[in-house]
Design a protein around this nucleic acid. Structure first.
Lengths: 256, 256
DNA sequence: AGGTATATTTCGCTT
DNA sequence: AAGCGAAGTATACCT
């Protein structure tokens, strides 16, 4: 698991260490210590000398962590090329992407610990409560949205994007349903309105008059979104994402 | 820098190690090894046994990394409470948040390495190329958008949200400018349209007739966004985010 | 605490 | 490669 480790390495040693373990692309490489970080690409950034933690995953993704937050201070998704080299008597790690063209450089001033860890491909990972699951549920049980609703299509591709659920109500009117797993915002209303218009345009090519209903289905909705929804003559329906029944309640001890 | 380290610790030792270093809240704690991860909160997830890397930052944020991607497999922003304890002869790390109420549990089956690292508050960090910078530039030089444009307000708070730039053109017409640092999408068009309507509503209270222009200013725009923009009688203007002149071009060697 | 918008968003999917 | 939308988005800002 801990395949290799260096303590307070020299620039040359760290460079060799990094290149050796990066080449195999089968372990997670990390370095902690004093460094400077420079990024240039979609934007540009520089971080003064500080104690940071660098992670390089087997897929070539890079992240430099400062002491706060989930988000890295600097990062790079799956890179095209990663190299370490010595420059001005310091070990420099350079990670580059081609598209978009961008580059992160980590200049090590005082590397303290370097490790190569074996990290396995994650076996089973299951997430429940996503919008996709909600969509599957409601496609099977459209009556949870409204009695008499029949689902015609899921992810119906319209001019751009896809309509979550396309349906017909008990009176035969077409219905566009936009789902949100969380609280619905004005954005969701805009999206729904856009889809309704697309469907209206589509139907107008074959019919004279159309009435297309738009339903925003979510567990909650913000007050401004509700106002805009009503102003646009669209509807809101409460739907609950079913949580697994085996919910372990958070032990009291953790909140005492 | 490397304050403390344990190799293949027993459940009890790891528990003590974690609690000791978590309590001080002054170093980054990490554990690598075989573990199971369970999350329950806004959604729910389970990860089968695998070799993962756990990071706990001094601010209480938690992330569990699998071998791929910048994003952690599981995470928790700044937690309210973190504790390690022994359960069924295994060390379990539980990190909980109150709002939203959620919990991550990492069950260690074979912890291999545990470390406590000193990570300093990042000193200077400068990012350039953000939308905020673009806004500052264009507020100073509105002629980059259109000759004769005068900026009345930045981040003007409207019914909901803020208008990036609120201005008046050479003919005295009011102009709403929505900025994007990257390619503008349909979302941006919806946003702009919403703001234009808000301003129209606002002005209609004091005036009889109003003509409010809406300008989407971005380096690029997607084709569908452009169509919708034109359908709504809104405008598009190309603006470039100025990149720092000291741009280090990506060395050829990295792409040979 | 609620609402909104940005992000070097990332990521996955479809065209 | 481009476009689109979801995300347990995270994070900052403002009311």
């Amino acid at each position: 698991m801990l395949r290799d480790q260096l303590l307070t390495p020299t620039p040359a040693d760290l460079t060799v260490f990094l290149n050796r373990h990066l080449r195999t692309r089968d372990c997670l490489v990390q370095v902690a210590g004093l460094a400077e970080v420079v990024y240039h690409g979609r934007a540009a950034s520089t971080a003064d000398v500080g104690a940071y933690l660098l992670l390089i995953k087997p897929d070539g993704s890079v992240q430099v962590h400062a002491p706060k937050g989930v988000k890295p201070m600097n990062w790079q998704p799956k890179t095209d090329e990663i190299t370490a080299f010595v420059e001005d008597d310091r070990c420099v790690l350079a990670a580059a992407r081609r598209s978009p063209q961008e580059l992160v450089r980590v200049i090590w001033l005082e590397p303290q610990v370097a490790q190569a860890l074996e990290i396995s491909e994650r076996g089973g990972f299951m997430l429940s409560g996503s919008e996709k699951q909600l969509q599957e549920l409601l496609a099977r049980q459209p009556e949870l949205i409204e009695p008499g609703l029949r689902v015609l299509s899921r992810e119906l591709p319209v001019s751009s994007g896809g309509i979550d659920l396309y349906a017909q109500d008990a009176q035969g009117r077409y219905v566009v349903v936009e789902l949100k797993r969380g609280k619905a915002t004005q954005d969701a209303v805009s999206q729904l309105a856009r889809y309704v218009r697309s469907v209206e345009d589509m139907l107008l090519r074959t019919r004279q008059t159309v009435e297309v209903r738009g339903i925003l289905a979510a567990p909650e909705i913000t007050a401004p979104a509700r106002l805009e929804l009503e102003a646009r003559n669209l509807e809101f329906v409460v739907v609950q994402v079913p949580q697994s029944s085996a919910v372990p309640s958070i032990p009291d001890s953790l909140f005492d």
